[in-house]
Amino acid sequence: MAIARDIVAETPNDLAAKARIQSAKLPDLLIEARHIANTLVSGFHGRRKRGTGDNFWQFRPYVEGEPVSRIDWRRSARDDHIYLRDREWAAAQTVWILPDQSASMHYQSRFSPIAKDSYAMLMALTLCDLFARSGERVAVPGLMAPTSSRNAAEEMALNFAALKEPYEYGHFLDINHHSHMIILSDFLDDPEEIRKKFASLTSANVTQHFVEICDPAEERFPYHGRVEFFDPETRQHYLAGRSETFHDAYLRLYQARRQSLTDFAKISGSSYHIAPTDKKMSTVILALAAMVGQASGYRRG
């Protein structure tokens, strides 16, 4: 639900216009995503695990019983120790990235420098660029097939720019088993409906990472006096004469919804992250990168 003063109802044409505006922002968001990715890349370790592959990772001391063929004799000749040459683990994972662009995501209060949909898209493009650089395959459900191209972020931006209406997540028929899915949304729907929507992914061994994009006004409810509230999803209006009287009840419901989804994430083996639009997204991005990079027990999907 959007929270703001003097909001007017938006028609489908209004939402289509916003979709076109968001598409026009994509080149700038892509540039900013590249800038963020370049800043974070030194702290992003990707898939650096020991295993079979072509890229050198490290030298380590030989342990009795290991294959002699893996000994690096040139390195071992430098001192009195025998060293093995380890290669970096080469199996790629598929990471599905889902930036919700539905009506409630258009919201931006005076406390935030960016709307929720733009923040979600910026984070999605940054994650796409980082994962593609590390050799993972990235995709968008229903929009972009898995790709390991170094230009994956540009491909994602082009796919979103070609949309005629806002992108909303729905069915996940194209999601392959044993992959990761990062969902960037405000999760303002009924928590029970959200749990039902993603339950099928849990049974398919898809590791889910929920990132709640929230405007600071949604977390604080900083309103006083006469305020009209409008829900862009249901198109309902409510005019509050003394909006401050709803402050405590609203915050209880807001936090209960968040706790319900956090509990669902824990039970299903997923992760849950909070990303306020007035804060830098680097902490959440690095946390997601670490979780995907350290994942094990999956197969190439």
Rank of each mutant, 00 (worst) to 15 (best):
A2F: 05
D6I: 03
A9M: 14
T11E: 09
A19M: 13
I21P: 00
S23L: 04
S23F: 02
K25W: 07
L26F: 11
D28E: 03
L29G: 12
L29C: 10
E32N: 10
L40T: 07
G43C: 00
H45L: 09
H45V: 03
G46Y: 11
R47W: 05
R48M: 12
G53A: 04
D54F: 04
Q58Y: 04
V63P: 02
E64L: 15
P67N: 04
V68L: 15
D72F: 03
W73G: 00
R75N: 02
A77L: 09
A77P: 00
R78P: 00
D79L: 08
D79Y: 08
D80H: 10
D80K: 10
H81R: 14
Y83N: 01
Y83A: 02
R85S: 12
A91N: 11
W96S: 06
Q101V: 06
S104Q: 04
M105K: 05
Y107Q: 07
Q108L: 13
S109R: 03
S109T: 07
R110L: 15
S118R: 12
F131D: 02
A132T: 01
S134F: 08
S134K: 13
E136K: 04
V138Q: 02
A139W: 15
A139D: 01
P141K: 08
G142E: 10
M144Y: 11
P146R: 11
T147V: 12
T147N: 07
S149D: 15
E154K: 08
E155R: 06
L158I: 10
N159P: 00
N159T: 07
N159A: 13
L163P: 05
K164F: 09
E165G: 05
F172E: 14
L173F: 10
D174Q: 08
I175S: 01
H177P: 13
S179E: 03
H180C: 08
M181H: 02
M181D: 08
D186L: 06
D186M: 08
F187M: 09
E192R: 14
E192Y: 05
K197W: 02
K197L: 11
S200P: 05
V206Y: 01
V206D: 07
V206H: 00
F210P: 01
I213Q: 08
C214F: 06
A217W: 03
R220V: 05
Y223H: 04
H224D: 12
T234N: 06
Q236N: 13
L239F: 12
L239N: 04
S243G: 02
H247F: 10
H247T: 12
L251C: 06
R252A: 13
Y254L: 07
R258L: 06
I267C: 09
S271R: 14
H273S: 09
I274E: 14
D278F: 10
K279P: 00
T283E: 14
I285R: 00
M291I: 13
G293R: 02
G297E: 06
R299A: 12
